[in-house]
């Protein structure tokens, strides 16, 4: 499958999801069995997206700042995101932590 086909398929699928109740299902309420799991999709997916990129180094779990500066930088980012909710501040602090650790080590 070409990358272009992948992107178009996701684009169409995403549009159909957005259209779903507005244009297709009508305004029947969403059943509970669907509503409950969907509540947990965002936290589960976002954590699953972030964790391997942050905690794995060459495929192995690495949380020491010496071998994997990203783990500590992500912890800093997590704390700041919780405290400030400011996207620019969190990105800047996270990147600065990685750069500082890379420079020191």
């Amino acid at each position: 499958m070409t990358d272009f086909a992948i992107v178009v398929a996701i684009g169409i699928g995403t549009y159909l999801i957005r259209l779903s109740f507005i244009g297709i299902v009508g305004d029947r309420a969403m059943p509970d069995w669907a509503m409950v799991p969907i509540r947990f999709v965002a936290p589960a997916v976002l954590a699953a997206l972030a964790a391997p990129a942050v905690l794995l180094h060459d495929g192995d779990l690495a949380i020491s700042p010496a071998t994997n500066p990203r783990a500590l930088a992500a912890a800093v980012a997590l704390l700041l995101a919780w405290k400030t909710k400011n996207v620019a501040v969190v990105i800047a602090a996270g990147m600065a932590t990685v750069w500082a650790l890379q420079a020191i080590l």
Binding site: A50, L78, A81, W82, V90, I91, G94, M95, Q102
Partner: peptide
């Protein structure tokens, strides 16, 4: 190391959920 900005974005999106 700007690729690290990707997990940082996910962390930012994660916290309010």
């Amino acid at each position: 190391s700007l690729d690290f900005a990707i997990p940082l974005m996910f962390v930012i999106l994660l916290v309010p959920t």
